[in-house]
Computed example of a mutant assay.
Amino acid sequence: MNIMFASHTYMGGPFVVGSHHLAREMEKLGHAVLHVSTPITPFHLLKLSNPDYRERFRILTGRSKNASPRLINSVPLSWFTWKMAGPIFQRTGKNWMVPSVKQLLRKNGMEQVDILFIDQPSFVGLEKLVKPKVTVYRPTDLYSKLTGNPSIAAAEAAILADAQALVSTSSPVLEELQGYNPQIPTLLLENGVEFEHFASCADEPEELRNIPHPRATYVGALDERLDREALLRLAQEQPETSVVIIGPHTPEDEAYFSGCSNAYLLGAKPYARMPDFLHHSDLALLPLSDHSANRGRSPMKLYEYAAAGLPVVVTETPELLRRQEDFLHFYRDSGDFPGKVRQALALQQDKERVRSLARSHAWDAKATRLLDFVSSL
């Protein structure tokens, strides 16, 4: 089949998301896959000092090679950002951000698209341009709550009015968005893990060699969805535990943890190296703030941590409690966090058993289940 993803995140950047994994797995199954991510605009030329924007322009201009002739990674051009186009869409129902993709489809032999997966709500209207046999809306977050932008809610309502199916990565997202179209067929399909990648290990990274055990490691962004206070309290109350933080950070983040000699901000690391940092840790951390968008999160990190054999100390959310995974150790507020970390470290769970719990969430099985669902429509 010819399959198209309209995603929020381009392939080849610092973040690897579910649409990337699903696209690769579907290409392995013999399908032709076009992965399109949020358009770049002429306004972004003013930000070319940012390596993220430079890489997106490289992809736009064809200077970034595709991994396979049957898996095309594309960043299209638009004249408008969603910040400009969103309010117009909310008033008129017309999306001036959606790029013309007909030439891109012809160039890649996709005059007919069989399945269009829309992950990014600002692509509303793309289904009318592409005219696929089946349109599936696949939200991975409560986007309107995450952004606080009412135009996103309007876009989601419009997509679901035309789509043939709703596939969500968490139960809260599914329940909330199904309200736009109660009759639409649905599938709950949690985010998965590239199991073989995270289950394998190389030598201890140089960056860890001077950091003493036990090491409690967090991987991800230091943004408003992170319970930073919990990490700080852990570092302050358990000086014998090394708190390792892997992800992009700012001077303000460094200042926040500056009083803790056992907090190590290592910066962003390539996806290819991430298993090595996890295999040489003792525990994984996923402290979530009370941000309303966290209620519907389906963190890929959970099963990536588990595939590396690590138990996880994580905030209680309705979605994560529903899963009943026994490698998860829940805490309720920042004050509980250090004690839960101490308990989890003392348990010394069997790493091979934790890995076995992650194996069933491998992306190849997720892709097959998703295609079987679409075929049944």
Score class of each variant (00 low, 15 high):
residue 189 L to K: 13
residue 190 E to R: 15
residue 191 N to S: 15
residue 191 N to I: 11
residue 191 N to H: 12
residue 192 G to D: 14
residue 192 G to C: 14
residue 193 V to Y: 10
residue 193 V to L: 12
residue 194 E to M: 09
residue 195 F to P: 12
residue 195 F to G: 13
residue 197 H to D: 09
residue 199 A to R: 13
residue 199 A to C: 11
residue 200 S to F: 07
residue 200 S to H: 13
residue 201 C to W: 07
residue 202 A to K: 15
residue 202 A to S: 15
residue 202 A to V: 11
residue 203 D to G: 15
residue 203 D to N: 14
residue 204 E to W: 04
residue 206 E to Y: 09
residue 207 E to F: 06
residue 207 E to V: 10
residue 207 E to N: 08
residue 210 N to I: 04
residue 210 N to A: 14
residue 211 I to K: 03
residue 212 P to L: 08
residue 213 H to G: 09
residue 214 P to W: 03
residue 215 R to E: 01
residue 216 A to V: 03
residue 216 A to G: 03
residue 216 A to F: 04
residue 217 T to D: 00
residue 217 T to Y: 00
residue 218 Y to G: 04
residue 218 Y to L: 08
residue 218 Y to N: 05
residue 219 V to G: 02
residue 219 V to H: 02
residue 219 V to M: 07
residue 220 G to W: 06
residue 220 G to S: 06
residue 221 A to H: 11
residue 222 L to R: 00
residue 222 L to F: 03
residue 222 L to K: 00
residue 222 L to A: 00
residue 222 L to D: 00
residue 223 D to W: 04
residue 223 D to Q: 10
residue 223 D to R: 07
residue 225 R to L: 06
residue 225 R to W: 15
residue 225 R to K: 14
residue 225 R to I: 11
residue 226 L to R: 09
residue 227 D to E: 08
residue 228 R to Y: 00
residue 228 R to W: 01
residue 229 E to W: 01
residue 229 E to S: 07
residue 229 E to N: 07
residue 229 E to H: 05
residue 230 A to S: 15
residue 230 A to T: 05
residue 230 A to Q: 06
residue 231 L to E: 01
residue 231 L to P: 01
residue 231 L to Y: 02
residue 232 L to R: 15
residue 232 L to M: 11
residue 233 R to V: 05
residue 234 L to A: 00
residue 234 L to K: 01
residue 234 L to E: 01
residue 234 L to H: 00
residue 235 A to N: 03
residue 236 Q to T: 15
residue 236 Q to C: 06
residue 236 Q to R: 15
residue 237 E to F: 05
residue 238 Q to M: 13
residue 238 Q to P: 00
residue 238 Q to Y: 06
residue 239 P to F: 04
residue 240 E to L: 08
residue 240 E to Y: 07
residue 241 T to L: 07
residue 241 T to C: 10
residue 242 S to A: 15
residue 242 S to T: 10
residue 244 V to W: 02
residue 245 I to R: 10
residue 245 I to Y: 09
residue 245 I to E: 09
residue 247 G to Y: 10
residue 249 H to G: 09
residue 249 H to Y: 12
residue 249 H to K: 10
residue 250 T to P: 02
residue 250 T to M: 02
residue 251 P to D: 13
residue 252 E to L: 08
residue 252 E to N: 07
residue 253 D to P: 01
residue 253 D to S: 02
residue 255 A to T: 11
residue 255 A to V: 06
residue 257 F to Q: 01
residue 257 F to G: 01
residue 257 F to V: 00
residue 257 F to R: 00
residue 257 F to K: 01
residue 258 S to C: 06
residue 258 S to V: 06
residue 259 G to F: 05
residue 260 C to D: 04
residue 260 C to N: 08
residue 261 S to V: 13
residue 262 N to G: 08
residue 263 A to W: 01
residue 263 A to I: 00
residue 264 Y to M: 02
residue 265 L to N: 04
residue 266 L to R: 05
residue 266 L to P: 04
residue 266 L to C: 05
residue 267 G to C: 04
residue 269 K to L: 09
residue 269 K to D: 10
residue 270 P to D: 15
residue 270 P to V: 11
residue 271 Y to F: 15
